[in-house]
Computed example of a mutant assay.
Amino acid sequence: MSLHFSVLASGSTGNAIYVATEEHSLLIDAGLSGKKMQELFTRIDKKIEDLSGILVTHEHSDHIKGIGVLARKYKLPVYANEKTWKAMDGLVGAIPTDLKFNFETERVKTFGDLDVESFGVSHDAAEPMFYAFHQGDKKLVVITDTGYVSDRMKGIISNANAYVFESNHDVQMLQMGHYPWSIKRRILSDVGHVSNEDAALAMADVMGDQTKRIYLAHLSQDNNMKDLARMSVEQTLATRGIITGEQVELYDTDPKSPTALAFV
Rank of each mutant, 00 (worst) to 15 (best):
H193N: 13
Y179C: 00
M176T: 08
H134Y: 01
T146Y: 07
G136R: 03
Y79Q: 04
M173Y: 03
D98I: 07
V78W: 01
L188I: 03
H123I: 03
Q175V: 07
G112M: 10
G112V: 09
D89T: 13
M153H: 08
I157V: 15
G112I: 09
R107L: 09
P96K: 02
I143N: 06
Y148T: 06
F130I: 04
S158N: 13
D113L: 03
H123V: 00
V92L: 05
D124K: 15
Y131K: 09
D170E: 08
H178Y: 12
L174D: 02
H178L: 12
D89W: 08
S158V: 09
T84Q: 12
F101V: 07
T110Q: 15
K138T: 04
K100W: 04
S189L: 03
D151C: 02
P180N: 10
T84P: 03
T105S: 15
A162G: 08
V171I: 14
T144V: 14
W181G: 01
W85H: 05
G155H: 13
F101D: 03
K100M: 09
D137P: 05
R186N: 08
F111I: 08
E117K: 09
A125D: 09
W181H: 12
H169S: 02
V108D: 11
P96S: 04
Q135E: 01
H134E: 00
K138Y: 02
A87R: 00
G136D: 06
F111V: 04
V121H: 08
L188E: 01
V191E: 14
G147R: 04
H193T: 00
S182R: 13
R152F: 11
Y179S: 09
I157L: 05
K138V: 00
Y131W: 05
K100Y: 02
F111C: 02
F101Q: 12
V78A: 10
K109M: 15
F165R: 03
N168K: 01
I157E: 02
A94R: 07
P96N: 10
K138L: 01
K139N: 00
M173I: 07
M153W: 04
L99G: 04
D145E: 08
A94M: 07
V194C: 11
W181N: 13
S122R: 13
A162F: 02
A126S: 15
G112A: 11
K154G: 01
N159W: 11
S118G: 09
M153T: 12
G147A: 11
A125M: 10
V164N: 03
D113F: 02
G112P: 09
F119R: 13
Q135Y: 03
L114M: 06
